[in-house]
Design a binder for these strands. Structure first.
Ligand SMILES: [Mn+2]
Ligand SMILES: [Mn+2]
Length: 305
DNA sequence: GACGCAC
DNA sequence: GTGCGTCAACGCACT
DNA sequence: AGTGCG
């Protein structure tokens, strides 16, 4: 018998961070291998817990969301605009050149509201706050062909790291929750999208030119077999890359984990970072804690090959 | 998942 | 009150 | 203009 007596109002489920969840036992990620199932309530609690590290990476940024309200194997779609139906806890931002307001999330409550809406991945833009027209991050995305070892991705990340350092920039590394790695480079205010795109292209094309048997910068799947695709196309207005601490809508509930460069070595296994295991890392220092202070201006074109 | 509308 | 249809993105490379 | 990609 419902406490609401004869009212036909639906029982509001348990709350996380004060936000009610319907169907809290909905299984978003079925059990897979070692990993147990992950329910909507599990996701909400995860997001609330990791908010201190997730929110700094997404606050003030327009977001592209991947939603799969049934489960990871069900219908999925991306959402960039704040349509009717998104919780009022979720923020919005109007941007010149955009017809409709974009999505922003700055609070733990809004994160829980995303879980309620079936948002399984969070992808922020590379610009934020008062300077939405200017990029403040470079992202270099390493996508290995099938059958390449993760050690080969590690080697590629270390090679790219050296080239980024040589330009006077400070790269950070994270797993993506998939088969690759991201280098994330904080940029000082004043960067431009066209310059950023050119610098990212130069870094990746330079490496691909020196070892064409190992790397490619072509997105076409043909020509990628046996190689690592160095994807610099995340560095454009409106493009996004998965947030650190974001879950991925893939079997096993993996997530994107920030790494210390000391961890980016042979034997690194990104599959060990999941919604279930990641919160333990909150007890250790944040390897990305120095990112804001590490922001540097893009190098002049004369420093590129 | 949320909403508007037909029934 | 219930059921059903509808909606929920886009930039870039390549051809 | 249409397709593939992320
Ligand atoms: Mn990737
Ligand atoms: Mn549905």
């Amino acid at each position: 018998m419902s406490p609401s007596g004869q009212s036909g109002r639906r029982d509001p489920g348990p709350a996380v961070a004060g936000v009610a969840l319907t169907h809290p036992e909905r299984v978003y990620w079925p059990a897979s291998g070692d990993a147990g199932p992950v329910t909507k309530q599990d996701l909400a609690r995860y997001l609330e817990r990791v908010a201190p590290r997730l929110l700094p990476a997404i606050a003030g940024r327009p977001l592209t969301l991947l939603r799969a309200p049934e489960r990871i194997g069900g219908e999925r779609f991306v959402q960039r605009h704040a349509a009717r139906g998104l919780s009022p806890l979720v923020g919005t931002v109007r941007l010149r050149g955009e017809e409709k307001p974009l999505i922003q999330v700055d609070t733990p409550e809004a994160l829980v509201a995303l879980a309620q809406s079936g948002v399984l991945e969070i992808h922020p833009w590379g610009a934020r706050g008062a300077r939405l027209a200017q990029p403040d991050r470079m992202v270099l995305d390493l996508d290995p062909a099938e059958d390449l070892s993760f050690d080969s991705v590690v080697a590629a990340a270390l090679a790219l790291r050296e080239r980024v350092l040589a330009l006077g920039l400070a790269p950070f590394c994270k797993t993506t929750g998939g088969k690759g790695l991201h280098l994330v480079v904080p940029l000082a205010p004043g960067a431009r999208w066209d310059r950023l795109h050119a610098v990212a292209a130069a870094i990746c094309e330079d490496l691909a030119r020196e070892a064409p048997q190992r790397f490619t910068t072509q997105s076409a799947l043909a020509g990628r077999d046996g190689r690592i695709f160095l994807d610099f196309q995340r560095n454009a207005r409106g493009a996004s890359a998965v947030a650190p601490w974001s879950p991925r809508a893939r079997p096993g509930a993996p997530m994107a984990m920030p790494l210390d460069w000391a961890e980016v070595t042979e034997g690194l296994d990104p599959r060990r970072f999941t919604i279930a295991t990641a919160p333990a890392r909150l007890e250790t220092p944040d390897p990305w804690a120095g990112m804001e202070e590490a922001a540097r201006p893009l190098p002049p074109a004369s420093k590129l090959r």
